[in-house]
Every structure is written in structure tokens, then in C-alpha cells.
Design a protein around this nucleic acid. Structure first.
Length: 285
DNA sequence: CCTTTGCCCTGAATGC
DNA sequence: TGCATTCAGGGCAAAG
């Protein structure tokens, strides 16, 4: 599932293979893929045609491609979204949702998304500035790999929340880019249980948790991200290698890499949390 | 205002 | 074998 490292790998792929190219034609094969576009597929297509793609940007799990005139193509991969740069001759996937053809007649940019939680849209940015964030992303916090992420402010805000620590890590308005996988990894590294109230964390503990989240995502990015099946691949269809380095996520019943205790999986918010029952003690009820 | 819940989706895995 | 159910989960609207 694409979280920050996986989206960053895709962003880099777009920078290399799509930036600077001019859109000749757009095809939307599933309306849900452009549901964020107020004017639907027709508007999406009309706004893209003839535009030259700028340098792709990212905040958390969102990415966008500046198009000039204050417009950007904003994308989110959701659960299963892929942006693929493929030769026109390559057969379409049954889950192909949108296609951009370029004026140079070379490779196409294809948006493939099995579960249709992802999407694309052309939107306004606040200014015609490469730093400008699309208006619709104004509520998304900076991510821990952003040089302007404010660590002390994060620690303060985290401790002021009336919630539990894993919920807070997944709150994209507090810290963006962290999903279920890297949340579990950061908590394991911090020896924190997912249900620990944020208000009970000391300031150093909050900063340590942030550091671990940053470290684990940096390490994952260095090896191309985490791939389990074909749910996440880079723009060339290649998998990342971080799944073999995961310490918590998906390791139910396998020994904790720190203490050897069998790892457990708990149902949590209609999904799963993986933790070590010895290293990550639950808070008192 | 802040936090929590439910919904959107499809295919693989599991249950009977 | 085959049909029905469960699970995966990010983001947002709506409820609490």
C-alpha cells in the first residue's frame, strides 16, 4: 500500500519519465478515478490537453504535477493506485482508469487502480509558484521528510490531542505520509503500544517517535519502498524491497526481532495492528 | 471545536 | 464445487 516512501518513489519516476512532456490526449476509463474533479471527466481532459508537465511535487501521500497558470494535476494512489509509464503497444490492464498520451508519441502515463480509492484531478494552486500547494491540500500537514516540518510544534500538538498514539500518527492533518505499515513500524521502534494516550507521552518520547517514523520511512525509500504483491510498484512496474525489513507489520506469530516473543495482530479500527506484547505494553485500562 | 464512525470499492482468502 | 462472507485500508462527510 502506498505510503510516503512509495509515493516518493513514484514522484521521482514521474520526474524522470514524464516531466517536460506535453499532453496530447487524455482518456478517462472510469469516472470514479476523477471524482474529485468538479466538472467530471470532460473538464479533467480539457484542462490537461496541451499542457506541459512541470516537476512533480509531493506532500505526504499526495502528489501533484504543476501545469502552469496556477493549475496542477493532483493525484492520490489510495490503496491500490499505480502511475505507470508504459509503451503504447503494451496491453491495457483491466484496471486501467485513465491514460495520458503525449505529443512526442512516446510512452504513455497510465493510472491503474483496482480498488478505486485513488484518483486524479486538475485543480487550482494558491499561486503560480512551484512551492504552491493545491488548495485542496491545504489541510494536509507537512510530512517528516519535508525540511520545513516543525518537530517541536509536532511534539506539542501530539501531546495536546485527546486521542491515542496510533490514531494520531495516521491523522494527516497532524503529520502526513504515515499509514498503517509505517505507523506500526515507528511504534515498534519506539516500544509504544498503539492505544497509548498521546497526552501521557513525555516530550522526549514524542520526539523519539517522530524520529523513528522519519528513520523508517527514509530507510524504506532507500530500497524503493514496501511491496507485498502487485499493489505497489514504481512507474516502471518494479517492486520495492522494504517488506523484508519490516519489524512489525505482517509479522503475526513470528518472533520479535528484539526479544523473540511472538508478535501479535490485533483488530484495530477495522484493520490490524501488529505489535510485540512484551516490548510494547498496553496502557492501563 | 475536537474526536469518532461509516462509507466508498474489488479481489483474494476463508467459511460453510 | 460453489456460493456467501470477511478482510484489506486512506480520506472524507457526517455524527457524536
Amino acid at each position: 500500500m502506498p505510503e510516503l516512501p512509495e509515493v516518493e518513489v513514484v514522484r521521482r519516476g514521474l520526474a524522470r519519465w514524464a516531466a517536460g512532456r506535453t499532453v496530447a490526449d487524455v482518456q478517462v476509463l472510469h469516472p470514479r478515478a476523477v471524482r474529485r474533479q468538479a466538472g467530471g471527466a470532460d473538464e479533467f481532459t480539457a484542462l490537461l490537453r496541451g499542457r506541459t508537465l512541470g516537476t512533480p511535487q509531493r506532500r505526504g501521500k499526495y502528489l501533484w504535477v504543476p501545469l502552469g497558470d496556477g493549475l496542477s494535476m493532483v493525484g492520490h494512489l489510495g490503496m491500490s493506485g499505480q502511475l505507470l509509464v508504459q509503451e503504447p503497444e503494451m496491453a491495457d490492464s483491466v484496471h486501467l482508469r485513465a491514460r495520458l498520451r503525449f505529443a512526442d508519441g512516446g510512452t504513455e502515463l497510465r493510472f491503474v487502480d483496482q480498488r478505486t480509492f485513488g484518483g486524479l484531478a486538475v485543480e487550482e494552486a494558491e499561486a503560480d509558484d512551484p512551492e504552491a500547494t493545491p488548495v485542496s491540500l491545504a489541510h494536509i500537514a507537512r510530512d517528516p521528510l519535508d525540511p520545513r516540518f516543525d518537530d517541536p510544534a509536532f511534539a506539542t500538538a501530539l501531546r495536546a490531542k485527546r486521542t491515542t498514539v496510533k490514531r494520531a500518527l495516521l491523522d494527516q492533518t497532524l503529520i502526513s505520509g504515515v499509514g498503517n505499515i509505517y505507523a506500526d513500524e515507528a511504534l515498534w521502534r519506539s516500544r509504544l503500544h498503539y492505544d497509548r494516550p498521546t497526552a501521557t507521552l513525555t516530550r522526549p518520547a514524542a520526539l523519539e517517535l517522530l524520529g523513528h517514523a522519519r528513520d523508517v520511512m527514509t530507510a524504506a525509500l532507500a530500497v524503493g519502498g514496501t511491496s507485498f504483491d502487485s499493489m505497489y510498484v514504481n512507474v516502471n512496474g518494479e517492486s520495492g524491497y522494504f517488506s523484508r525489513d519490516l519489524d512489525a507489520y505482517g509479522r503475526e506469530g513470528r518472533p520479535c526481532r528484539r526479544c523473540g516473543t511472538p508478535m501479535r495482530r490485533d483488530p484495530w479500527m477495522n484493520r490490524s495492528s501488529y505489535s510485540c506484547p512484551k516490548c510494547q505494553r498496553p496502557p492501563r485500562a
